[in-house]
Simulated assay, not measured.
Amino acid sequence: MFSDIFKQLIQNKGVTVYQISKDTGISESLMSHWKSGRQLPKYDSLNILADYFNVSGDFLLGRTNEISNLVEKKETQEEKEPTKSRIIPLYMTGASAGTGNWLSDDVPVEWMTIPKTAITEQADYMLKVRGDSMQPKFFDNDVLLIKKSPSILEGEIGIFILNGDSYVKQMGRGELISLNPAYTPIKLTNYDDIRCSGKVIGTVDFE
């Protein structure tokens, strides 16, 4: 479990909770809850810990028992730098249509470990494309990287909640646009309840 892994990492690194708090900005009281098993860290804290201890997200989540050689007490210059990764939530509701509340705490998420890149570092969450309305750019079951934003610019692609349904569309002038010409644009009116939940910044492949 996470509490055991966390305590082992602290011991291996030879640091105190106080020192970790100073280095990372995470409060000592929060880490005390982690050590006791009373609470689990959120994904942003997991990413901070993965960087701090030089381990993978999978190791922190207990998915592998292979600890990076960089957490040994004695490190050498010749040791190979491990591949950097981060942990990010994948929402289980698709991006073409839904109830409109899929970003709430009630919607199931799967915590995924993905490579850390300049693009993935900007992403706040992921979700899958449902349908073919955004072809040829995005296909059914593609996993989108989303950066939270209350608005996007015209011509950009984002996640929108329109009258309770969720869509991945290109922002047009007074309309939401599908890239597939088989779909007509969704015209927006003054009576529509619409909000932007984020900007699509890319995709990630788990294969």
Rank of each mutant, 00 (worst) to 15 (best):
A97I: 12
G62C: 11
D132Y: 04
E78Y: 10
I48R: 05
E28T: 14
E156V: 09
L144R: 03
Y18D: 08
F138T: 04
D51W: 03
F53K: 05
A123T: 02
K84H: 14
R130N: 07
T203R: 13
S133D: 00
S178Q: 04
E207D: 11
N101I: 07
D124A: 12
Y125A: 13
E81I: 01
S45R: 15
G94M: 10
P108S: 03
A97M: 12
D4V: 14
L103T: 12
L46V: 07
E78A: 14
G98L: 08
V55I: 08
L127V: 09
N180C: 12
G62I: 00
K128P: 01
D51R: 13
G94C: 09
E75I: 14
P41Y: 07
T76E: 07
L162M: 02
G62D: 06
E156W: 12
A182P: 00
Y191R: 12
I119T: 14
P108R: 09
M126E: 09
L30R: 07
E81V: 06
R86I: 15
R63C: 08
Q170S: 02
K187W: 01
G100T: 06
L188V: 04
K42Q: 14
K169E: 05
K7G: 02
Q135K: 14
G25V: 05
I26Q: 12
L49R: 01
N47W: 01
T83K: 15
G57I: 07
M1G: 11
F160V: 10
K147P: 09
N54Y: 06
H33E: 13
Y18N: 14
N190G: 13
V71T: 13
Q135S: 06
I48F: 06
G158Q: 09
P82E: 01
D142V: 10
K74R: 15
T113D: 03
E78I: 10
N163E: 08
Q8M: 02
K13S: 04
D51C: 06
M92L: 11
I87Y: 05
I88T: 05
K73G: 10
K187S: 08
K199R: 12
Q39K: 11
S3W: 09
D192V: 08
I161W: 04
I177C: 00
G131H: 05
C196T: 11
E79H: 01
G164I: 05
I87W: 04
E121H: 05
L176D: 00
S56M: 11
L46T: 04
V129A: 06
G14Q: 05
N141P: 01
R63Y: 05
Q135R: 13
S166Q: 05
F2D: 07
T16Q: 02
P108N: 14
D44T: 14
P136A: 05
F139D: 13
F160S: 07
G37S: 12
E175N: 05
E154S: 15
T117M: 04
L46M: 15
G14T: 04
S36W: 05
S133I: 01
T83H: 08
E28V: 13
Y167F: 10
